[in-house]
Every structure is written in C-alpha cells, then in structure tokens.
C-alpha cells in the first residue's frame, strides 16, 4: 500500500435488505458476500452494481435506492467506500418513517 499501488482484494461483507428490496430478493440478509475491491476500496455504485448482478431483480429499483455501510448512509454513490471483511452493507430504499 505504501507505494500507492492498490491490488485487487476480495472483501466479504454481510448484506441486509429492507422493505421493497427485501421482498424482491426474497431474503433479509446474506452473509459473506464477496466484493472485488481495489485495495479494500470500492465506490457505492460499484457495490450496488455487484449486488444487482447477484440479484437481478433489484435492477428495477436500483436508481431509487442508496446503501448504508456499517450503519452510515452512503448517499453519494460515487464516493469510494473503505471496506473490510465482516462489514455490513444495507440496501436502503426511500425511507418512510413517522
């Protein structure tokens, strides 16, 4: 890492699905989901893209969801996320509390 060279690294994360995304994929969680990262980094949209490849039924709502990484919203999906094994990634459809 010190040379600034980022090698490809597979990080295994735990996925959570809520509301419409949960209904579409038919499960509320999936552990040890592999993400191909660059030195542990991946943009939010690439994370979402990988999830959609595994669960094509999510493509229909892809443009209206964001993700949360370890209980923090990643609203700007272009931002890189620093990922480690065991991290939690949640698919977050528009919220409707209150």
């Amino acid at each position: 890492m010190s040379q600034g060279h980022r090698s490809e690294e597979v990080v295994r994360v735990n996925l959570l699905f809520f509301a419409k995304s949960r209904e579409l994929v038919g499960t509320s969680s999936l552990d040890n989901f592999p993400l191909a990262t660059s030195g542990g980094h991946l943009s939010g949209s690439a994370v979402l893209g990988t999830i959609c490849e595994r669960f094509p039924e999510l493509v229909a709502i892809r443009d209206s969801v964001i993700i949360a990484h370890n209980e923090q919203y990643c609203e700007d999906l272009t931002e890189p996320i620093s990922l480690a094994d065991g991290d939690e990634i949640a698919v977050i459809p528009p919220i409707a509390g209150g």
């Binding site: 809520f18 509301a19 964001i66 609203e75 949640a90 977050i92 459809p93 919220i95 409707a96 209150g98």
Partner: peptide, 25 residues
Amino acid sequence: PVWKKEQYAEGEGCSEWKENKECSW
C-alpha cells in the same frame, strides 16, 4: 431508516411502499 407499506382495500390495488418526501433519495 424505517419503512411503511400501505395495504389497500380489495380491488384498489393491493399494497404500496411509501416514500417520505423529506427523504433525499
């Protein structure tokens, strides 16, 4: 992060996930 689904009376379209207009996405 809370979600709400409305179930409608029969014949009015079964159900719908709501979205708060305050939610930025």
